[in-house]
Write a protein that binds this DNA or RNA. Structure first.
Lengths: 192, 192
DNA sequence: GTCTATATACGGATAGAC
DNA sequence: GTCTATCCGTATATAGAC
Protein backbone atom coordinates (compact mmCIF):
# COMPACT_ATOMS: atom_id res chain seq x y z
CA UNK A 1 0.00 0.00 0.00
CA UNK A 2 2.08 2.88 -1.29
CA UNK A 3 -0.91 5.23 -1.32
CA UNK A 4 -0.31 8.26 0.87
CA UNK A 5 -2.81 9.67 3.32
CA UNK A 6 -3.09 12.73 1.16
CA UNK A 7 -5.92 14.92 2.37
CA UNK A 8 -6.59 16.51 -0.97
CA UNK A 9 -6.89 13.19 -2.70
CA UNK A 10 -9.09 11.95 0.09
CA UNK A 11 -11.41 14.93 0.03
CA UNK A 12 -11.80 14.62 -3.72
CA UNK A 13 -12.92 11.01 -3.38
CA UNK A 14 -15.35 11.78 -0.57
CA UNK A 15 -16.89 14.73 -2.34
CA UNK A 16 -17.21 12.80 -5.57
CA UNK A 17 -19.02 10.05 -3.70
CA UNK A 18 -21.54 12.46 -2.25
CA UNK A 19 -22.15 14.21 -5.54
CA UNK A 20 -22.50 11.00 -7.52
CA UNK A 21 -25.10 9.86 -5.02
CA UNK A 22 -27.02 13.09 -5.40
CA UNK A 23 -26.74 13.89 -9.10
CA UNK A 24 -25.55 10.77 -10.89
CA UNK A 25 -22.58 10.44 -13.21
CA UNK A 26 -23.39 12.88 -15.99
CA UNK A 27 -24.93 15.27 -13.51
CA UNK A 28 -21.73 15.56 -11.51
CA UNK A 29 -19.20 18.00 -12.93
CA UNK A 30 -15.52 18.17 -12.12
CA UNK A 31 -15.86 21.88 -11.39
CA UNK A 32 -18.44 21.22 -8.71
CA UNK A 33 -16.31 18.49 -7.21
CA UNK A 34 -13.40 20.88 -6.92
CA UNK A 35 -15.55 23.67 -5.52
CA UNK A 36 -17.30 21.54 -2.89
CA UNK A 37 -14.23 19.61 -1.82
CA UNK A 38 -12.24 22.76 -1.28
CA UNK A 39 -9.40 20.94 -2.98
CA UNK A 40 -6.75 22.92 -4.80
CA UNK A 41 -8.00 23.56 -8.31
CA UNK A 42 -4.91 22.36 -10.06
CA UNK A 43 -4.56 19.07 -8.29
CA UNK A 44 -7.34 16.98 -9.75
CA UNK A 45 -5.52 15.56 -12.74
CA UNK A 46 -2.38 15.17 -10.70
CA UNK A 47 -4.10 12.79 -8.31
CA UNK A 48 -6.41 11.23 -10.90
CA UNK A 49 -4.62 11.16 -14.27
CA UNK A 50 -7.47 9.23 -15.87
CA UNK A 51 -9.91 11.97 -14.93
CA UNK A 52 -13.54 11.63 -14.06
CA UNK A 53 -13.86 7.91 -14.55
CA UNK A 54 -10.98 7.13 -12.21
CA UNK A 55 -12.38 9.51 -9.63
CA UNK A 56 -15.77 7.81 -9.87
CA UNK A 57 -14.14 4.41 -9.68
CA UNK A 58 -12.39 5.19 -6.45
CA UNK A 59 -15.44 6.93 -5.00
CA UNK A 60 -17.50 3.82 -5.68
CA UNK A 61 -14.86 1.64 -4.02
CA UNK A 62 -14.96 3.93 -1.01
CA UNK A 63 -18.75 3.77 -0.85
CA UNK A 64 -18.54 0.01 -1.06
CA UNK A 65 -16.34 -0.12 2.03
CA UNK A 66 -18.38 2.40 3.98
CA UNK A 67 -21.79 0.92 3.32
CA UNK A 68 -20.65 -2.68 3.70
CA UNK A 69 -19.18 -1.80 7.08
CA UNK A 70 -22.34 0.03 8.07
CA UNK A 71 -24.40 -3.05 7.22
CA UNK A 72 -22.08 -5.47 9.01
CA UNK A 73 -21.79 -3.32 12.13
CA UNK A 74 -25.52 -2.84 12.31
CA UNK A 75 -26.29 -6.53 11.81
CA UNK A 76 -23.76 -7.51 14.45
CA UNK A 77 -25.79 -5.84 17.15
CA UNK A 78 -28.36 -8.66 17.33
CA UNK A 79 -27.83 -12.39 17.18
CA UNK A 80 -31.20 -13.20 15.69
CA UNK A 81 -31.16 -12.45 11.93
CA UNK A 82 -34.76 -11.24 11.95
CA UNK A 83 -34.16 -8.73 14.71
CA UNK A 84 -30.84 -7.74 13.21
CA UNK A 85 -32.15 -7.07 9.74
CA UNK A 86 -35.27 -5.34 10.97
CA UNK A 87 -33.19 -3.03 13.13
CA UNK A 88 -30.80 -2.39 10.26
CA UNK A 89 -33.73 -1.09 8.25
CA UNK A 90 -34.87 1.11 11.13
CA UNK A 91 -31.32 2.45 11.35
CA UNK A 92 -31.39 3.20 7.65
CA UNK A 93 -34.72 4.99 7.98
CA UNK A 94 -33.32 7.10 10.81
CA UNK A 95 -30.32 8.02 8.71
CA UNK A 96 -32.60 8.89 5.86
CA UNK A 97 -34.68 11.20 8.04
CA UNK A 98 -31.57 12.74 9.60
CA UNK A 99 -30.65 13.79 6.09
CA UNK A 100 -26.99 14.65 6.63
CA UNK A 101 -25.75 13.67 3.22
CA UNK A 102 -27.37 10.30 3.13
CA UNK A 103 -30.03 11.58 0.83
CA UNK A 104 -29.67 9.96 -2.48
CA UNK A 105 -29.22 6.29 -3.22
CA UNK A 106 -25.50 5.49 -3.42
CA UNK A 107 -24.79 2.95 -6.13
CA UNK A 108 -28.12 2.57 -7.88
CA UNK A 109 -28.04 6.16 -9.06
CA UNK A 110 -24.78 5.51 -10.88
CA UNK A 111 -25.33 2.06 -12.25
CA UNK A 112 -28.75 2.80 -13.73
CA UNK A 113 -27.18 5.57 -15.75
CA UNK A 114 -24.00 3.89 -16.96
CA UNK A 115 -24.88 0.20 -17.18
CA UNK A 116 -25.06 0.32 -20.97
CA UNK A 117 -22.12 2.60 -21.61
CA UNK A 118 -19.39 1.82 -19.09
CA UNK A 119 -18.64 -1.83 -18.37
CA UNK A 120 -15.77 -1.09 -16.02
CA UNK A 121 -17.93 0.93 -13.65
CA UNK A 122 -20.86 -1.43 -14.04
CA UNK A 123 -18.69 -4.37 -13.07
CA UNK A 124 -17.50 -2.48 -10.01
CA UNK A 125 -21.08 -1.71 -9.00
CA UNK A 126 -21.89 -5.37 -9.40
CA UNK A 127 -19.21 -6.15 -6.86
CA UNK A 128 -20.65 -3.58 -4.48
CA UNK A 129 -24.09 -5.18 -4.57
CA UNK A 130 -22.46 -8.57 -4.17
CA UNK A 131 -20.69 -7.35 -1.08
CA UNK A 132 -23.94 -6.11 0.51
CA UNK A 133 -25.70 -9.29 -0.50
CA UNK A 134 -22.97 -11.34 1.13
CA UNK A 135 -23.31 -9.43 4.41
CA UNK A 136 -27.01 -10.27 4.63
CA UNK A 137 -26.47 -13.86 3.53
CA UNK A 138 -23.77 -14.46 6.14
CA UNK A 139 -26.06 -13.20 8.86
CA UNK A 140 -28.82 -15.54 7.75
CA UNK A 141 -26.47 -18.52 7.56
CA UNK A 142 -25.24 -17.84 11.06
CA UNK A 143 -28.89 -17.91 12.13
CA UNK A 144 -29.39 -21.41 10.79
CA UNK A 145 -30.75 -20.86 7.30
CA UNK A 146 -29.40 -23.09 4.57
CA UNK A 147 -26.96 -21.76 1.99
CA UNK A 148 -29.54 -21.58 -0.78
CA UNK A 149 -32.20 -20.07 1.43
CA UNK A 150 -29.74 -17.52 2.69
CA UNK A 151 -28.69 -16.56 -0.81
CA UNK A 152 -32.27 -16.10 -2.03
CA UNK A 153 -33.47 -14.28 1.06
CA UNK A 154 -30.46 -11.98 1.11
CA UNK A 155 -31.06 -11.13 -2.55
CA UNK A 156 -34.67 -10.33 -1.76
CA UNK A 157 -33.81 -8.19 1.24
CA UNK A 158 -31.18 -6.30 -0.71
CA UNK A 159 -33.65 -5.60 -3.52
CA UNK A 160 -36.44 -4.62 -1.13
CA UNK A 161 -34.29 -2.12 0.69
CA UNK A 162 -32.97 -0.52 -2.44
CA UNK A 163 -36.39 -0.27 -3.97
CA UNK A 164 -37.65 1.24 -0.73
CA UNK A 165 -34.90 3.84 -0.84
CA UNK A 166 -35.90 4.84 -4.33
CA UNK A 167 -39.47 5.36 -3.23
CA UNK A 168 -38.41 7.13 -0.03
CA UNK A 169 -36.42 9.59 -2.07
CA UNK A 170 -39.30 10.12 -4.43
CA UNK A 171 -41.81 10.69 -1.64
CA UNK A 172 -39.33 12.46 0.56
CA UNK A 173 -40.25 10.42 3.59
CA UNK A 174 -39.07 7.21 5.20
CA UNK A 175 -42.39 5.39 5.35
CA UNK A 176 -41.50 2.84 2.64
CA UNK A 177 -38.51 1.66 4.65
CA UNK A 178 -40.69 1.27 7.74
CA UNK A 179 -43.14 -0.80 5.75
CA UNK A 180 -40.30 -3.02 4.51
CA UNK A 181 -39.09 -3.54 8.07
CA UNK A 182 -42.51 -4.85 9.08
CA UNK A 183 -42.43 -7.39 6.28
CA UNK A 184 -39.11 -8.89 7.30
CA UNK A 185 -40.52 -11.29 9.93
CA UNK A 186 -43.21 -12.46 7.52
CA UNK A 187 -40.59 -13.41 4.99
CA UNK A 188 -38.09 -14.92 7.38
CA UNK A 189 -40.24 -16.90 9.78
CA UNK A 190 -40.65 -20.26 8.15
CA UNK A 191 -38.36 -22.96 6.80
CA UNK A 192 -35.44 -22.21 8.99
CA UNK B 1 -58.14 17.55 -25.87
CA UNK B 2 -56.88 19.80 -28.63
CA UNK B 3 -53.63 17.84 -28.93
CA UNK B 4 -53.09 16.59 -32.46
CA UNK B 5 -51.89 13.11 -33.33
CA UNK B 6 -48.74 14.63 -34.66
CA UNK B 7 -46.23 11.95 -35.48
CA UNK B 8 -43.20 14.12 -34.93
CA UNK B 9 -44.33 15.16 -31.49
CA UNK B 10 -45.11 11.57 -30.69
CA UNK B 11 -41.77 10.23 -31.83
CA UNK B 12 -39.97 12.84 -29.78
CA UNK B 13 -41.79 11.76 -26.64
CA UNK B 14 -41.17 8.07 -27.28
CA UNK B 15 -37.50 8.53 -28.02
CA UNK B 16 -37.04 10.75 -25.01
CA UNK B 17 -38.61 8.08 -22.83
CA UNK B 18 -36.23 5.42 -24.09
CA UNK B 19 -33.17 7.61 -23.73
CA UNK B 20 -34.10 8.79 -20.24
CA UNK B 21 -34.49 5.20 -19.21
CA UNK B 22 -31.06 4.33 -20.59
CA UNK B 23 -28.96 7.37 -19.74
CA UNK B 24 -30.84 9.44 -17.16
CA UNK B 25 -31.72 13.10 -17.34
CA UNK B 26 -28.33 14.78 -17.59
CA UNK B 27 -27.06 11.95 -19.74
CA UNK B 28 -29.73 12.49 -22.36
CA UNK B 29 -28.99 15.28 -24.82
CA UNK B 30 -31.44 17.03 -27.08
CA UNK B 31 -29.19 16.38 -30.05
CA UNK B 32 -29.33 12.66 -29.47
CA UNK B 33 -33.09 12.78 -29.06
CA UNK B 34 -33.44 14.49 -32.41
CA UNK B 35 -31.01 12.12 -34.10
CA UNK B 36 -32.58 8.92 -32.79
CA UNK B 37 -36.16 10.00 -33.24
CA UNK B 38 -35.57 10.95 -36.84
CA UNK B 39 -37.70 14.00 -36.09
CA UNK B 40 -37.17 17.17 -38.09
CA UNK B 41 -34.38 19.08 -36.42
CA UNK B 42 -36.16 22.36 -36.30
CA UNK B 43 -39.33 21.11 -34.69
CA UNK B 44 -38.30 20.40 -31.13
CA UNK B 45 -38.90 23.82 -29.64
CA UNK B 46 -42.00 24.24 -31.71
CA UNK B 47 -43.64 21.23 -30.09
CA UNK B 48 -42.01 21.71 -26.70
CA UNK B 49 -41.53 25.42 -26.05
CA UNK B 50 -40.31 24.78 -22.51
CA UNK B 51 -37.53 22.61 -23.84
CA UNK B 52 -35.94 19.60 -22.23
CA UNK B 53 -37.94 19.64 -19.01
CA UNK B 54 -41.27 19.67 -20.80
CA UNK B 55 -40.11 16.87 -23.06
CA UNK B 56 -39.06 14.84 -20.04
CA UNK B 57 -42.33 15.62 -18.29
CA UNK B 58 -44.42 14.30 -21.14
CA UNK B 59 -42.15 11.30 -21.62
CA UNK B 60 -42.61 10.39 -17.97
CA UNK B 61 -46.37 10.74 -18.29
CA UNK B 62 -46.28 8.43 -21.28
CA UNK B 63 -44.19 5.89 -19.40
CA UNK B 64 -46.66 6.07 -16.55
CA UNK B 65 -49.53 5.12 -18.84
CA UNK B 66 -47.61 2.38 -20.62
CA UNK B 67 -46.22 0.67 -17.56
CA UNK B 68 -49.42 1.01 -15.53
CA UNK B 69 -51.32 -0.60 -18.35
CA UNK B 70 -48.76 -3.35 -18.65
CA UNK B 71 -49.10 -4.09 -14.96
CA UNK B 72 -52.91 -4.05 -15.00
CA UNK B 73 -53.18 -6.18 -18.10
CA UNK B 74 -50.75 -8.71 -16.78
CA UNK B 75 -52.43 -8.91 -13.36
CA UNK B 76 -55.83 -9.33 -14.98
CA UNK B 77 -54.82 -12.68 -16.43
CA UNK B 78 -55.20 -14.51 -13.11
CA UNK B 79 -57.86 -14.16 -10.44
CA UNK B 80 -55.64 -15.19 -7.57
CA UNK B 81 -53.38 -12.28 -6.54
CA UNK B 82 -50.47 -14.57 -5.75
CA UNK B 83 -50.55 -16.24 -9.13
CA UNK B 84 -51.17 -12.93 -10.84
CA UNK B 85 -48.28 -11.10 -9.25
CA UNK B 86 -45.92 -14.00 -9.60
CA UNK B 87 -46.69 -14.26 -13.28
CA UNK B 88 -46.33 -10.53 -13.69
CA UNK B 89 -42.78 -10.83 -12.41
CA UNK B 90 -42.07 -13.70 -14.78
CA UNK B 91 -43.43 -11.55 -17.61
CA UNK B 92 -41.12 -8.76 -16.56
CA UNK B 93 -38.14 -11.09 -16.46
CA UNK B 94 -38.98 -12.29 -19.96
CA UNK B 95 -39.17 -8.72 -21.21
CA UNK B 96 -35.88 -8.00 -19.56
CA UNK B 97 -34.21 -10.95 -21.26
CA UNK B 98 -35.79 -10.09 -24.59
CA UNK B 99 -33.96 -6.80 -24.35
CA UNK B 100 -35.84 -4.85 -27.01
CA UNK B 101 -35.59 -1.46 -25.38
CA UNK B 102 -36.77 -2.51 -21.97
CA UNK B 103 -33.23 -2.41 -20.72
CA UNK B 104 -32.93 0.30 -18.20
CA UNK B 105 -35.21 1.07 -15.29
CA UNK B 106 -37.85 3.59 -16.39
CA UNK B 107 -38.60 6.04 -13.61
CA UNK B 108 -36.01 5.21 -10.96
CA UNK B 109 -33.19 6.26 -13.25
CA UNK B 110 -34.68 9.73 -13.53
CA UNK B 111 -35.92 10.35 -10.02
CA UNK B 112 -32.70 9.28 -8.32
CA UNK B 113 -30.89 11.92 -10.30
CA UNK B 114 -33.28 14.84 -10.03
CA UNK B 115 -35.02 14.36 -6.68
CA UNK B 116 -33.04 17.14 -5.06
CA UNK B 117 -33.01 19.58 -7.94
CA UNK B 118 -36.35 19.38 -9.73
CA UNK B 119 -39.50 19.22 -7.63
CA UNK B 120 -41.85 19.28 -10.58
CA UNK B 121 -40.40 16.15 -12.12
CA UNK B 122 -39.97 14.48 -8.74
CA UNK B 123 -43.63 15.06 -7.96
CA UNK B 124 -44.60 13.53 -11.27
CA UNK B 125 -42.44 10.49 -10.59
CA UNK B 126 -44.13 10.17 -7.22
CA UNK B 127 -47.45 9.92 -9.01
CA UNK B 128 -46.08 7.25 -11.31
CA UNK B 129 -45.01 5.07 -8.40
CA UNK B 130 -48.36 5.72 -6.76
CA UNK B 131 -50.12 4.51 -9.88
CA UNK B 132 -48.15 1.27 -9.97
CA UNK B 133 -48.65 0.82 -6.26
CA UNK B 134 -52.37 1.26 -6.68
CA UNK B 135 -52.52 -1.40 -9.39
CA UNK B 136 -50.97 -3.97 -7.08
CA UNK B 137 -53.06 -2.87 -4.11
CA UNK B 138 -56.31 -3.17 -6.07
CA UNK B 139 -55.44 -6.69 -7.11
CA UNK B 140 -54.76 -7.65 -3.51
CA UNK B 141 -58.00 -6.07 -2.29
CA UNK B 142 -59.98 -7.94 -4.90
CA UNK B 143 -58.37 -11.11 -3.55
CA UNK B 144 -59.68 -10.49 -0.04
CA UNK B 145 -56.81 -8.70 1.67
CA UNK B 146 -57.74 -5.79 3.92
CA UNK B 147 -57.11 -2.22 2.85
CA UNK B 148 -54.12 -1.76 5.14
CA UNK B 149 -52.62 -5.11 4.29
CA UNK B 150 -53.06 -4.44 0.62
CA UNK B 151 -51.39 -1.06 0.90
CA UNK B 152 -48.37 -2.41 2.77
CA UNK B 153 -47.97 -5.50 0.64
CA UNK B 154 -48.30 -3.55 -2.59
CA UNK B 155 -45.65 -1.11 -1.38
CA UNK B 156 -43.36 -4.02 -0.60
CA UNK B 157 -43.94 -5.70 -3.94
CA UNK B 158 -43.35 -2.47 -5.80
CA UNK B 159 -40.07 -1.90 -3.95
CA UNK B 160 -38.92 -5.48 -4.40
CA UNK B 161 -39.47 -5.42 -8.12
CA UNK B 162 -37.72 -2.14 -8.63
CA UNK B 163 -34.79 -3.17 -6.51
CA UNK B 164 -34.63 -6.41 -8.45
CA UNK B 165 -34.55 -4.51 -11.73
CA UNK B 166 -31.63 -2.43 -10.51
CA UNK B 167 -29.69 -5.57 -9.66
CA UNK B 168 -30.73 -7.28 -12.90
CA UNK B 169 -29.35 -4.38 -14.86
CA UNK B 170 -26.15 -4.41 -12.88
CA UNK B 171 -25.62 -8.14 -13.30
CA UNK B 172 -27.01 -8.20 -16.81
CA UNK B 173 -29.24 -11.15 -16.09
CA UNK B 174 -32.78 -11.70 -14.91
CA UNK B 175 -32.03 -13.99 -11.98
CA UNK B 176 -32.92 -11.42 -9.28
CA UNK B 177 -36.43 -11.08 -10.69
CA UNK B 178 -36.85 -14.84 -10.67
CA UNK B 179 -35.78 -14.96 -7.04
CA UNK B 180 -38.33 -12.26 -6.20
CA UNK B 181 -41.08 -14.22 -7.90
CA UNK B 182 -40.37 -17.21 -5.70
CA UNK B 183 -40.71 -15.08 -2.57
CA UNK B 184 -44.15 -13.77 -3.46
CA UNK B 185 -46.13 -16.73 -2.08
CA UNK B 186 -44.11 -16.66 1.15
CA UNK B 187 -45.07 -13.03 1.69
CA UNK B 188 -48.67 -13.31 0.61
CA UNK B 189 -49.81 -16.55 2.15
CA UNK B 190 -51.00 -15.65 5.60
CA UNK B 191 -53.51 -13.34 7.24
CA UNK B 192 -55.80 -13.07 4.30
C1' DG C 1 1.74 19.42 -5.82
C1' DT C 2 -0.64 23.13 -7.37
C1' DC C 3 -1.57 27.12 -10.52
C1' DT C 4 -3.59 29.52 -14.80
C1' DA C 5 -4.75 29.47 -19.34
C1' DT C 6 -6.69 27.29 -22.88
C1' DA C 7 -8.24 23.69 -26.32
C1' DT C 8 -12.23 21.59 -27.88
C1' DA C 9 -16.55 19.64 -27.73
C1' DC C 10 -21.20 19.62 -26.53
C1' DG C 11 -24.96 21.11 -23.72
C1' DG C 12 -29.63 23.80 -24.03
C1' DA C 13 -31.76 27.48 -26.11
C1' DT C 14 -33.14 31.42 -29.44
C1' DA C 15 -33.81 34.12 -33.95
C1' DG C 16 -35.45 34.59 -38.14
C1' DA C 17 -35.97 32.67 -42.88
C1' DC C 18 -38.82 29.56 -45.39
C1' DG D 1 -44.15 23.19 -39.02
C1' DT D 2 -39.63 22.93 -40.09
C1' DC D 3 -34.80 24.70 -41.27
C1' DT D 4 -30.23 26.81 -40.44
C1' DA D 5 -27.28 29.55 -38.04
C1' DT D 6 -25.74 30.94 -33.88
C1' DC D 7 -25.34 32.49 -28.88
C1' DC D 8 -23.56 31.26 -24.66
C1' DG D 9 -22.58 28.48 -20.93
C1' DT D 10 -20.37 24.53 -19.24
C1' DA D 11 -18.19 20.11 -19.80
C1' DT D 12 -13.70 17.31 -19.73
C1' DA D 13 -9.14 17.52 -20.55
C1' DT D 14 -4.33 19.29 -21.54
C1' DA D 15 -0.07 22.43 -21.48
C1' DG D 16 3.21 24.62 -19.28
C1' DA D 17 4.60 27.88 -15.50
C1' DC D 18 5.63 27.93 -10.61
Amino acid sequence: MVKSNNTTRNKLIETTGKLLQLHGYSGTGLNEIIKQSGAPKGSLYYHFPEGKEQLAYEAIERTKENVTNFIKDSLARYDDPIEAIQNFIYDSAKRFEADSYFNGVPIANIVLEISKTNDRLRELCRKVFESWHEAFADKLKSGGYSDEESWDLAMTINAMIQGAFVICLTRQDSKPLLVMAEQIPVMLIKGK
